[in-house]
């Protein structure tokens, strides 16, 4: 027999399940980082992410990444349906290893940046952005 408590539990479970397909799992983020680093270890710091603490509109969130001396910077959105956002590859003509763009965030989540340094090492930073209205359409 279904008690009131059981019904609540089933409802909560269903709600949790429906949330899952909309979010990149932690492993998807780890896989994206591993694909970028080739499995090399990643140290914290050396990358600066600039983004609003609270973004009212997830459809267009300004994000800037800066990693002095980096060859490339990968940006991931840990809570989007797929984590990939962008990769910047800087060449000899670049005046800095900084770039800014506008991104879609499906909800409150961490924005992750991983920088590849010319010596083959990797640096990482993460910044939480609170999103009031999600930007994944659908």
């Amino acid at each position: 027999m279904l008690t009131r408590r059981d019904t609540m539990a089933i409802g909560l479970g269903a709600a949790a399940l429906t949330l899952v397909p909309g979010m990149a799992s932690a492993s998807a983020v780890d896989e994206a980082i591993a694909a970028f680093t080739g499995g090399a270890s990643v140290s914290e710091g050396g990358v600066t992410i600039t983004a609003p603490e609270i973004a009212e509109n997830g459809n267009t969130v300004p994000v800037e990444v800066d990693a002095p001396g980096a060859a490339s910077i990968l940006i991931l959105a840990a809570g989007n349906p797929t984590p990939g956002v962008a990769t910047f590859n800087f060449s000899e003509g670049a005046g800095s290893q900084r770039a800014a763009t506008r991104i879609r965030l499906g909800g409150t989540q961490d924005v992750v940046a991983v920088a590849k340094m010319p010596d083959g090492s990797f640096k990482q930073a993460a910044l939480e952005v609170k999103v009031t209205i999600g930007g994944c359409g659908g």
Binding site: T82, G84, A86, F90, S91, A99, R102
Partner: peptide, 12 residues
């Protein structure tokens, strides 16, 4: 060459 950027659907 200055910059070469790869964009995914999460770009606005």
């Amino acid at each position: 060459q200055v910059i070469d950027m790869e964009l995914h659907p999460a770009i606005s």
